[in-house]
Design a protein around this nucleic acid. Structure first.
Lengths: 323, 323
DNA sequence: GTGAAAGCGCTAACAC
DNA sequence: GTGTTAGCGCTTTCAC
């Protein structure tokens, strides 16, 4: 077995409680004793057992991060940032993938609950009811979805949509299409609301669609039928599918139709034409969500909504309306 | 506090040890008692505290997964698969990102060690010495690197290279360039060895290069100077950078130069021309690595190398040599 | 400033 | 088949 607090105590000729204090309440122990104990601990390669500590303190120093799909390019930057921020604060993070299945999501939260101080829920598929019920057992922070009374991190896609529409109208586009996402998506609703409020352009809504390349591919016919000269897609994956589908029909992007995505995922930067997109600050969202979570862990904080700015990144998939 | 084993014991009028057994050794307890206890536990919403359990059993039912960079598109499918497999076996997984920093990597292993039964090291940046030393404290499985005496999961990129070269020679290419990766990369060495062994073609080695789009972009001049009509890149990111750089010089892919990548990441499927690539079975690697790890956790298994097949996916970035 | 003792939630001999 | 007891590694009163 690994070296325990008792080994350190024996080696330094003090009681275990003194060793414990040397680590978790240094000011309570004589400087000389402390430095000696710490030195011996270091020497022996002692590391406090966090799980054992958690048993008495009630703080595991772990958090859970639950996402719908790790492999969706939208999430990795968020996971990376959340994990980095957690590490900065001396927390470890369990990452779990629900495969978009609400039942798995609930099960995961349940089994994780005893081992973490809080859970980050990213784009949860659970009902609000269920989330509120589970909230009794463990603090949450929700990302990318609005849940009443719960700390929430949102990205202001509405602003991005306004910027995008302005960008397009400046390029002479008047007839726009919005290829929406899944019907349950908060982001999709926000986009629709923002687009509908714009008077500069005439926007047709096309959807709902799966939030994937295939979703975009399948929407091409409708887009063409709509007569729009510019399309705003639910996300970059859909936008890429759209561009691909248009190319297959011999329609040039941005020559004949302009396309804008949402998210700013890596493939969008790498595909050609490079995608103009509404950038979602996913890394910032991850970082901030962790801060909020740790904060709410030791302060019983009530809900509160943090909204992060989005921005428009103009690349090569948008151009002047030539019709 | 949440409901504990003691609450269940009281509510069911049995001793805690009976409740414990009802969960962890069901066959040792009378069927009637067991079902009653289980029912009451369910009723109370009791969930065994895994951390407390770990204290006595020595099994945390957690594993650690350490990767160099979560945001690198190569890893998410691996993480996803590993996590899914772990969940199937009732394990949770800590995911940590080292930011390519060996020191962070070691620190992470150290602090994780007490909370996990084993660690999955993906493309570790640590020296073999260090890994072997840390091996004393916790079981490892290493992915994507060869470490003596340690269970290892490798992907046979050599085979992929052979398939790629055959594909290219069949298309009439005789002068090839291999844009290598970072000097320390095991995969890069394997690729060089495999390419050097092919007699059908004349291969120029260009590198080392950073394993990124920028690395590819920067290698364009050398590629052009080499006179090669086809290029094999260290990975898809490099290949995409290469294609981009060639396009900037007015060189058409695959019209004038063919390009093949390695990995089969999402952006490669989405970029245009769609990338011909040597597909790395990352999901399978994650799944199998977890199995090996859990196996070695309770069997003191000695090292052993599992090699997974790669394959060539022909898409649109390769074509006939017209020179 | 330090030691002694109790206890966190659970499992694992050992009795009976 | 079930209760008793001890103890996993640690923190936290409470004495002294």
């Amino acid at each position: 077995m690994a070296v325990t607090i008792r080994d350190v105590a024996e080696a330094s000729g003090v009681h275990v409680s003194t060793v414990s204090r040397a680590f978790s309440a240094p000011h309570l122990v004589n400087t000389v004793t402390r430095t000696r104990v710490l030195a011996i601990a270091e020497d022996l390669g002692y590391r406090p057992n966090r799980a054992a500590r958690a048993l008495t303190t009630g703080r595991t120093h772990n958090i859970g991060l639950i996402v719908a799909d790790i492999a969706n390019p939208f999430f990795p930057p968020l996971i990376k940032a959340a994990q980095a921020q957690a590490r900065m604060r001396d927390y470890h993070v369990f990452v779990a993938d629900t495969d978009e299945d609400p039942q798995v999501e609930e099960e995961l939260i349940q089994t994780l609950t005893k081992q973490v101080d809080g859970v980050l829920l990213c784009s949860p598929r659970l009902t609000n009811r269920t989330i509120e019920r589970l909230r009794e057992e463990i603090p949450f922070v929700v990302v990318n979805r609005r849940v009443k009374g719960m700390p929430t991190v949102l990205m202001d896609v509405g602003r991005g949509v306004r910027l995008a529409v302005e960008h397009l109208t400046r390029l002479g586009h008047r007839r726009l299409a919005l290829v929406t996402g899944p019907s349950g998506s908060w982001t999709s609703k926000e986009m629709q609301a923002a687009a509908a409020a714009m008077v500069e352009a005439d926007v047709t809504f096309l959807g709902p669609n799966p939030p994937t390349e295939l979703g975009g591919l399948a929407a091409v016919t409708d887009v063409l039928a709509s007569g729009a000269t510019a399309v705003l897609a639910y996300n970059d994956l859909v936008a890429i599918g759209l561009i691909e589908g248009l190319a297959a029909r011999g329609v040039d992007v941005p020559g004949e139709i302009s396309v804008i995505g949402v998210d700013d995922i890596v493939p969008g930067r790498l595909s050609r034409p490079k995608l103009t997109t509404i950038a979602m600050p996913t890394a910032a969202a991850g970082r901030i969500a962790v801060d909020l979570l740790l904060q709410s862990v030791d302060s019983e904080s009530t809900g509160g909504v943090t909204v992060l700015e989005t921005s428009l990144i103009v690349r090569d998939s948008t151009g002047e309306n030539r019709k």
